[in-house]
């Protein structure tokens, strides 16, 4: 269980998060959504201690500020939004960096296994810098996976914190990565992801947190949070929310302000 209570973060003097509460449970994907500038990434960065915050963040009952770095590294891994790497490392080298945090040395095939899971089998010898944005994103995901490979460790559930994990991927790879996250959660791990795509969120997330102007507007299952009313108010545009055929998964259709059909 991850809980964030009364979180306040200011960036260069401007308050970005104003007393926000958030919770995520292992066993499901928790998506953080909201308009640009609503504080999604800031919340993720506060919860991963990249930014100083006021308030309290607890992971598995313990205040994360008090958990030593190496212990945290064994329990949670973080995928950044975009990563540029300083030197010409190969894909294999980058993925192996994830295993630095592992207490017991994992089997040597682990890195290749992780690459296969993100759809990059055979990319081991390629240079990271020469890959496309989407491929780099998946290499980073493979690295993050090797760090917390087993969704449940001796100390409890492990966590993936992902900042827009599918933003630069095509639709096929988006589904592949979302499936991977869903598998991780289904096996008992925790997944917290900042998401832009509301339809993928609706399809995969067990819990959706809607952020608006640094506050938690709503959190719950997709069909309670992704409603016409909440979305229109949050994003300031007209949307139509329907239900996908053969289920209760909502889908979101944006409405043009002046559509040609009237």
């Amino acid at each position: 269980m991850l809980t964030a209570t009364d979180i306040r973060v200011s960036l260069s003097g401007t308050p970005v998060l104003n007393g926000l509460d958030f919770r995520a449970e292992p066993g499901q994907i928790t998506a953080i959504v909201g308009p640009n500038g609503s504080g999604k990434t800031t919340l993720l960065r506060a919860m991963t201690q990249e930014l100083p915050y006021e308030g309290e963040i607890r992971l598995g009952g313990a205040d994360i500020a008090l958990i030593p770095g190496w212990d945290l590294a064994a329990r949670r891994a973080v995928l950044p939004q975009a990563s540029r790497i300083a030197f010409p490392f190969t894909v294999l080298e980058i993925v192996r960096f994830g295993m630095m945090a592992c207490a017991d040395p994992p089997p040597p095939t682990r890195a290749s296994e992780a690459l296969e899971r993100v759809g990059l089998a055979g990319f081991e010898g390629r240079f990271y810098q020469e890959l496309s944005g989407g491929e780099q994103q998946r290499v980073q995901l493979a690295r993050v996976l090797t760090q917390v490979w087993d969704p449940v460790g001796p100390e409890g559930p492990r966590w993936l914190f992902l900042d827009e994990p599918v933003s630069s991927l095509d639709i096929g790879h988006q589904l592949e990565v979302m499936d991977l996250m869903a598998d991780y959660a289904a096996a008992g791990g925790g997944v917290v992801a900042v998401m832009h795509d509301l339809n993928l969120t609706a399809m995969y997330a067990g819990s959706v947190a809607m952020l608006v102007r640094g506050k938690l507007e709503a959190q719950g299952v997709a069909r309670h949070v992704l409603t016409d009313r909440i979305l229109s108010a949050a994003y300031g545009c007209r949307v139509q929310v329907g239900v996908a055929p053969g289920g209760d998964i909502p889908f979101v259709l944006p409405q043009a302000a002046s559509s040609p059909g009237g």
Binding site: R45, Q49, D71, L72, A73, V78, G98, M100, A101, Q147
Partner: peptide
């Protein structure tokens, strides 16, 4: 940040 997340 990534280095810190690796426990360094």
């Amino acid at each position: 940040a990534a280095a810190a997340h690796l426990g360094i």
